[in-house]
Amino acid sequence: MGGNGLNSREKVLKLLNHEEVDFIPCFSGMGNIVMDGLKKYGLQFNEVHQDARKMALAAKATPELFGYDCAIVPFDFNVCAEALGSKVQYYKTEDILYPSIPEKIIKSFEDIKLPSDPENAGRFPVVMEAIRILKKETGNDVAVGSWVLGPFTLAGQVTDLTKLLKDTFKKPNEVIQFLTPLRDLLIAEAKLYQKAGADFITVREMGTPVDLLSPRVWKSMIQPFMIKMREEIGSPVVLHICGKTNEIIHFMHECGYDAVSVEHQNDVAMSRQKIGPPPKNLLLGNLNTYKVMVEGTAENVANEVRAAIDGGVDAIWPGCDIWPGTPAENMKAMVETTREYGSKKKKGG
């Protein structure tokens, strides 16, 4: 099997460092908690978002149980919005319900108030502490990652998205003005997570696929923000967008991230052609986290893993947060098929 003698962390970092590798890792930069992992540590889904210790345990259970190559925090999309003053609703039910923001408090650029001390703002310190715990308890073996949103996606969390979208047409300069301070806070957030010890950062600009914005608007409005974030955050850093991305994959790639990440609606073979070969150009993806991972059989998962590898991905990477209800046998099938088929493929098999 490829990656002889290397542990999970070394494999992930070698890949993201653009070295020639003879293996395909199985990891992602997005949430990876599963119910089996919560059970292992006696946790409820609703208690892992505000407590650093519980957050870390939930994240590290997945590599422990299934040999997944990373542990990732946090799990919900509201950490930065909370630091901007949004009130987050935490659910108390036993259902798997991610926290949300019921009220958009920011109406215009003037309402944006950046925290004076980011290191102690909102849940930034909770995520930082979770990263420190992960580094200490599992950081020698698995890659510890964290992520931040992109400014457009964050804007959708804190302000009226309908107005924002229309303004991309009517008042593009105002949109750019609005997104700039958000970008700066997101960069600060990423740096805090690096300071706490994160091995790699993923920037999730989820709200900007071709389903929503035209490639032209992506290029003119979103790309400059992505480039700035890439420059400021530094390596290793991954850019992720979900939804349809084949039409913008080359623009994503131009931003200079160490890797681009896509979901199942992206035709990875086509993307591979557009961005060029590894190890310089890395493509991560693109397992369907619901239809295949949750509803499919282990065999379906194995087939999807093989199809993604055949399509040319450099890591098997679920295209979104792993849904906590994903069955254990599907998690195992994902990791094991990646190891076996990935090494075979790398040897030219």
Binding site: T162, K166, T168, F169, V210, D211, L212, L213, S214, E247
Partner: peptide, 14 residues
Amino acid sequence: KQEYFVPEILMCAD
């Protein structure tokens, strides 16, 4: 046909 995107649809709706 990917000639229009969501911002355009929202303006059409108005």
